[in-house]
Design a protein around this nucleic acid. Sequence first.
DNA 1: CTTCTGACA
DNA 2: TGTCAGTA
Length: 135
Amino acid sequence: MSMKKDKHITMREAKERTGLTSRQIRYYDEQNLIFPARSKGNQRLFSESDLQRLLKIKKLLAAGNSIETIRLKMKTPQAKEIDPYAQLSEFEDSINDYADEELDSLYPVSNRFALLKKLTFNDHDINDQEFEEEN
DNA sequence: CTTCTGACA
DNA sequence: TGTCAGTA
């Protein structure tokens, strides 16, 4: 049974889906942040994970991270499959990424990461308040 | 017409 | 990073 078909993504689609310029994408490739395959004509063939990485890179870059920092932070796709902790680390990163978003109400639980972090963050504050009220 | 590499106001 | 050149 085949998994998801690794449909080759062209540079054009990569640009459209990431909002990055071809110049930026090639530069990130040159910096070994992504590892797209190549066609016989030396054309870059991006995978779905490459697109995800590009979006991640765009986000980290906008957050003020350097290329070097991002390279260390994201490791290689290979390491993610082998190292179990890489996945946990990735999950923690996801929490930090999404938890910064505002959370007005607890009802629209569309952002579970924000909710999770908000709960863990206010945990001691809530206890302090309850402690004060009880005394 | 689009992508690729190398180079540079 | 943008962009121009010269290919493929």
